[in-house]
Amino acid sequence: MKFPAFKYLRPSSVAEAAAQLAEHGDDARLLAGGQTLMPVLAMRLAEPEVLIDLGRIENLRGIALEDDALRLGAMTRYVDLERSALVAEHAPLITRALPYVAHVAIRNRGTIGGSVALADPAAEMPACMLALGAEIELTSTEGNRWIAAEDYFLGLYETAREDTEILTAIRIPLAPERRVGFYEVARRHGDYALAGAAAVGDVEDGRIQGLRVAMFGCDDLPVLAKTAAKAAETGVLDGAWLEADVSPTSNINGEAHIRLAQARVAFRRAVTDLLGVSNG
C-alpha cells in the first residue's frame, strides 16, 4: 500500500499555489492535513500526477476575530481549533463537535479546510459549517469568492469548488446569543457517524427560534433539516418531519428506514442538547 508516484510542489503563497493549480487542473490534488487524502492515495483510489502541499503557506493557518465573523484559515488544524478560546467563545459548536472527530493524532494534523473541501457526508465539520451558516472562501488565479456553506455542498463529495480553486478560509458569522447542540450515533468513538446532527438556535422562554440543524451521515451530503427544524420550533422535537429533509439509502450500516430512525434520534438529541435538557 505505497503511494503512487506523483510530482510534489510546495508553494509558499496562495498565489503560487493557485498558479500551480491553474496549470495542472484536475491532474493535481491539494494536500492539506493529508489525513484523508493519504489513505486514498495509499489504496490507489486516486493517482494524481501532482500533489500541491499547502503546508508551507503561513497565512493559511490561524484563527482571527473580525468585525462580524470568526475567520478560520483553511490550514488551521483541528487541534488549534480545539484549544482556541476564540472558537470556544464564538463558535462553540465546533468546540463541542471536535472531540468526535477521529482521534488525537489525526486532529493534530487534520485541517478544517481539508475536511470542508473533501465534504465527507458523514464528517462532523462540514455539517457544523452548514449549521453555523459559514461562508467559504475559494481562491484561484482569477481572484477569490465567498460562498455560503448552503450553496457549497452539492452532492456526494461534490462541492461548488472548481478544480482551479483553493479553499482558503472559512468565516463564521458572530451570533452571541445562539445556543448549540450536537449528537452523533457512532459505533466506536471517533468513527464517522452513522447519523449525526449539529444544531444552532436561539432559545427564548423555552422556545427555539432560528433553529438550524445540519444532519450528517444520513445522506449523500450534509443537509440542513429545514422541515424538521421548523417543526421543532413549534415543539415537535422528535424529528418526525426529517424524511422531508434527508433520504438515507440502504447500505452496509443498515436499511434505509433504520438509518432514518437513527437520524431522527440524532436530531432530537441534538435539539434537546441545545435546549440544555439531558438526552434520553
Binding site: R187, N253, G254, E255, I258, A261, Q262
Partner: peptide, 11 residues
C-alpha cells in the same frame, strides 16, 4: 450485534 440488527430485532 450491529446497531441496525438490534433495531431490526426490536422492530
Amino acid at each position: 450485534c450491529t446497531p441496525a440488527r438490534i433495531l431490526t430485532a426490536i422492530e
